[in-house]
């Protein structure tokens, strides 16, 4: 704080000139001096002190009351000086925290990264964007030699760091399940036990698991209280909700999950999403599911990745580029 002493001579000259000329240029220079003082953590009481000294130099005949009153002012400024230092310290600390979080976010991206697989006969598009730095949504693709495709999509109620930590747990539990365990309902039952045992009861995770079987061209799925997706029947140009009964993960110990199956025809699409999509907020209003469906419909003819990007761009613009919740959308289109 001492290295950049407020230069008394400089201040005295400026003050003298101002008293003589009342010139705006001098005031502008005083403004520059003020900015520089803040940058160098010079407190208000030091400026007042310099002011007192300069004034005494210029006007030695000043009445005692005036100089005394300036001493009084100096005393009254002490807490502002402390507040300035505290502010600078806290800003530094905030900067450190932010860079720590961005390291964690990059690490999360690496840990939870999933390869968009190329599966014969399917066109797959996926996008997941966090509202803050860390993502509380998670999706993962699992492929198998026989050409089947598993799709996991989960959403932690809440966002930010706690949500992101819970997601890592989901991913590593899934990795530890044996390869032959592919039934959606069983996967959710096992994950439910892991979550129930390890996660604070106030934290809920919703999840959808689906398995595409190329042999009979079916999609079997189960849901743990997850936001229902859509099934698009191409031949009828019609959407249908994808529903399956099941409680959110972690709510009870022995939850069971209904497993459903859907035959997939050429051109049909499976659309999976999290509530960051359906609960986009515009002002005080939530977007209706109907509106979401309409927007998806507008882009469904595009290649899958292109379509999810376009839908995201639409809602990003609608919310004035400020996401309220993590946003994840997956579209799987049957090509042949």
């Amino acid at each position: 704080m001492e290295q950049m002493k407020l230069d008394l001579n400089n201040y005295r000259n400026l003050l003298k000139e101002y008293l003589l000329t009342k010139n705006e240029t001098v005031l502008y220079q005083a403004e520059q001096l003020s900015k520089m003082s803040v940058q160098h953590s010079i407190s208000p009481e030091e400026i007042i002190n310099v002011h007192i000294e300069a004034l005494k130099d210029l006007h030695p005949e000043l009445p005692q009351e005036v100089t005394d009153s300036l001493d009084f002012l100096l005393e009254a400024m002490i807490s502002y000086g402390l507040a300035l230092q505290e502010f600078q310290f806290l800003r530094q600390k905030q900067f450190e925290l932010e860079s720590e979080i961005s390291v964690a976010a990059r690490m999360q991206e690496t840990l939870l990264s999933t390869v968009h697989p190329s599966v014969k006969g399917l066109d797959i598009g996926a996008i997941s964007v966090p509202a803050n730095q860390m993502n509380g949504d998670y999706y993962h693709f699992v492929t198998d030699k026989d050409g089947s495709l598993g799709i996991a999509l989960a959403d932690v109620i809440g966002k930010g760091i706690p949500a992101a930590l819970a997601m890592s747990m989901i991913k590593y539990s899934m990795d530890s399940f044996p390869d032959n365990q592919r039934e959606p309902s069983l996967i959710l039952e096992n994950l439910n036990r892991v979550v129930e045992r390890n996660v604070d009861p106030s934290m809920f995770i919703t999840m959808f698991y689906g398995l595409y079987n190329p042999e009979d061209e079916t999609f079997s799925f189960a849901s743990a209280g997850h936001e229902p997706g859509f099934y698009y029947h191409a031949s009828e140009d019609r959407f249908e909700e994808i529903h399956a009964r099941g409680l959110v993960l972690g709510a009870t110990h022995n939850a069971t999950y209904q497993q459903c199956i859907q035959k997939i025809n050429k051109g049909d699409c499976i659309i999976l999403l999290t509530d960051g999509v359906t609960e986009c907020r515009v002002g005080d209003r939530f977007v209706e599911r109907e509106e979401v469906r309409q927007v998806i419909k507008d882009y469904i003819h595009l290649p899958a990745q292109n379509a999810v990007d376009k839908v995201y761009k639409y809602f990003e613009r609608l919310q004035e580029f400020h996401l309220r919740d993590d946003f994840t959308l997956i579209i799987i289109k049957k090509e042949v």
Binding site: E45, E46, N49, I52, D71, L74, E75, I78, S79, L82
Partner: peptide
């Protein structure tokens, strides 16, 4: 001590 430091010490 100067005026500023006096005020700081008092605070």
């Amino acid at each position: 001590f100067g005026t500023v430091d006096q005020a700081r010490i008092a605070t």
